[in-house]
């Protein structure tokens, strides 16, 4: 350390820092913004000013594969009546023809074209998946928001109800409902499966409503005079929708598999009237050992791939929409 210069000897050391600033002071008379040299031009390297310094998030190639496959299935299912394919109920050839160039997926035990049944079956399976989760999602969100945002007695009552609902084994509940209504249409099966989805959805939504309801931005909105409806719509729901969306995508996959499960019990949509992937898999069961495994395996594979695509896209969407807060 150099010897202290005479003018700061004996003074507290920190003082000299500020004394040092004094000599800057003597150099300048008046410093107004307009007088200063354009430092901003020199400073254009400020990270805030550079676009692209912030890396962009990407969904990735696999996501587009998965989503592309799922979209293809949906489009085929929707456009089935207009596609140049045969009537799914029509017998088009001998039973149990192995896949070939004429019957891409072969024929089933009655001689119906499996390819066109898979496409028509997608209509029913997807409809059950979407409708059940739509139902479960709407009811579950309403319950979850009411519990997590309003708190108090409402919360206690609703969450006890959800616990009761959760304590029934899920498939058993669906089973009871289908059995009880005794009509095995897309609508009843969807409502049955949707009811099963209510409690998990409500819990997810409530947990998020609790977290976001306590954030300072909600308090700020209240202090600005926003009413509850506006706070829910503008501040809370936008934060709940992304996790709910990715949860629902995965739940659709679960509902489609569950429909297959109900088919095995003979409790899903009547195979006689409507083809679903579930009842197609079931109808191929006897042929599994009889040399015609494709009758069961092809709809199984399609269901598997669809579910996989949904799960994967759901996960990626969750990661993608996660916003950093800190």
């Amino acid at each position: 350390m150099p010897a202290p210069s005479p003018d700061n000897a004996g003074r507290p050391a920190a003082d000299s820092v500020f004394a040092a600033s004094g000599d800057i002071a003597t150099e300048v008379t008046r410093i107004a913004d307009g007088d200063a040299r354009d430092l901003d031009a020199l400073r254009k390297l400020d990270p805030d000013q550079i676009d692209g310094a912030r890396p962009k998030k990407r969904l990735g190639l696999f996501f587009w594969f998965a989503a592309g496959f799922f979209i293809l299935v949906v489009v085929l299912a929707i456009t089935a009546p207009w596609l140049p394919i045969k009537n799914p109920a029509k017998i088009v050839g001998r039973p149990r023809i192995a896949p070939n160039s004429q019957f891409w997926f072969g024929t089933d035990a009655l001689g119906r074209d499996i390819f066109c049944r898979v496409i028509w079956g997608a209509r029913a399976s997807l409809a059950v998946g979407f409708l059940s989760i739509l139902f479960g999602g709407v009811v579950g969100t309403a319950v979850g928001v009411a519990a997590g945002y309003l708190r108090g007695k409402t919360e206690t009552v609703l969450m006890v109800a959800m616990d009761v609902l959760l304590s029934f084994p899920a498939l058993l509940l669906a089973l009871a409902i289908v059995n009880f209504t005794d009509s095995k249409t897309i609508l009843t099966v969807s409502i049955a499966l949707g009811l099963v989805a209510v409690a998990p959805t409500a819990r997810l939504v409530r947990a998020n409503a609790l977290i976001y309801g306590q954030k300072d931005f909600v308090l700020a909105a209240r202090l600005l005079g926003a009413n509850h409806v506006r706070i829910l719509r503008r501040e809370i729901l936008p934060n709940i929708v992304p996790p709910l969306l990715s949860f629902s995508i995965i739940a659709i996959a679960v509902a489609m598999v569950a429909e297959g499960g109900l088919s095995f019990l003979g409790l899903s949509i009547d195979a006689a009237s409507t083809a679903t992937w579930g009842n197609m898999i079931v109808s191929g069961k006897p042929a599994l050992e009889n040399g015609a495994p494709w009758i069961s395996l092809i709809p199984s594979a399609v269901l598997f791939l669809t579910v996989l695509a949904l799960n994967f896209s759901g996960d990626r969407i969750r990661e993608y929409t996660d916003v950093k807060e800190g």
């Binding site: 600033s21 800057i24 002071a25 150099e27 300048v28 008379t29 008046r30 913004d33 007088d35 040299r37």
Partner: peptide, 22 residues
């Protein structure tokens, strides 16, 4: 510093408080 601040402005004793805007 002198180059960055107001070229042409004569150097002298600052008015009290003027430093603060630096």
């Amino acid at each position: 510093l002198a180059r960055n601040l107001a070229p042409g402005v004569p150097i002298g004793i600052p008015a009290p408080g003027s430093m603060s805007s630096v």
